[in-house]
């Protein structure tokens, strides 16, 4: 479904990704872990189409389409969703109006009819239940005055509403207490399906106790330096990142 090859990217003069290669199959859940500053959030931003980054080499294909040719809107229409690490507050726009506009904008670009009011409300209700988002938060301005946990639940709520083919979760666990972590994970797990893939970016292993990945990759210095099964996350939690990063350095030397 997603194929990233030898990706190099920079912001300003700083090169952040230095030859990242990664491939995700349909229906798979991949976790990306790595030390701070390794390029995890850069990868998430580039996948979603943030224009601040410049891709200097390499390629990304999504279902065979050159993703780098699509802008942020077109990527969402193609089925990519980014759950933001820092969801943006938008005063004056209600959560519901925001989602209806987004949903219908996507449908229009896919040449589908707008969703009916009845279907929309039924969907809102079902998706809100999934992450235990209460009615007040649905009607409030997007993320305005939400707690950290509410913002992350709102991201997963939006994900459930938009039903992406590939969901990228950028440190969705940061700032969550144990209950919110459970709720958010439950929301993500109930969306797992044979035709939907997830890229879970996290600094800590604890999220992966709840959202169990098929593959775990270690991102360091702008490249994937090690890959393994779900047990790799536990090993990283125990031993830290240094042993892999050091081994990689030795290998290269």
């Amino acid at each position: 479904m997603l194929k990233i090859e030898n990706l190099h990217a920079r912001i300003g003069d700083t090169e952040i990704l230095k030859g990242l290669t990664l491939s995700l199959g349909t229906g798979e859940v991949h976790a990306i872990m790595g030390p701070n500053g390794s390029g995890k959030s850069t990868l998430a931003s580039i996948l979603a189409g943030r224009e601040d980054y410049e891709v200097t080499a390499g390629s990304i294909t999504f279902d065979g389409v050159d993703l780098l040719e699509l802008d942020a809107t077109e990527r969402a229409v193609a089925g990519i969703f980014l759950a933001f690490q820092y969801p943006v507050e938008i005063p004056g726009v209600s959560n519901i109006n925001f989602l209806r506009t987004a949903l219908n904008s996507i449908r229009e670009q896919r040449e589908e009819a707008p969703i009916s009011g009845k279907d929309f409300l039924a969907k809102v209700k079902a998706c809100a239940q999934l992450v235990e988002l209460d009615g007040k938060l649905r009607d409030r301005s997007v993320n305005e005055g939400f707690s950290g946990g509410e913002k992350k639940r709102n991201e997963v709520f939006q994900m459930a509403m938009l039903e992406p083919r590939l969901a990228v979760l950028d440190e969705t666990d940061s700032g969550l207490d144990i209950d919110a972590l459970r709720i958010v994970s439950h929301g993500v797990n109930s969306m797992r399906s044979a035709d939907r893939s997830f890229l879970v970016i996290t600094h800590y292993q604890r999220l992966l106790d709840h959202i169990v990945p098929d593959h775990v990759h270690v991102l360091a210095g702008g490249r994937i330096v090690h890959s393994g099964g779900k047990e790799l996350a536990l090993e990283l939690e125990e031993k830290g990142y240094d042993w892999i990063v050091d081994a990689q350095a030795t290998e290269q030397a």
């Binding site: 809107t73 980014l82 004056g92 726009v93 506009t101 301005s141 939006q158």
Partner: peptide, 27 residues
């Protein structure tokens, strides 16, 4: 940042501007 957020949810640039201007003037 708000524009990128709206576009990442599938809104066209025009739809995103529209929503932000509406929100701005609604008060």
């Amino acid at each position: 940042e708000a524009l990128f957020y709206l576009r990442s949810r599938g809104m066209t640039e025009t739809a995103a501007h529209n929503l932000l201007v509406q929100a701005f003037l609604a008060e």
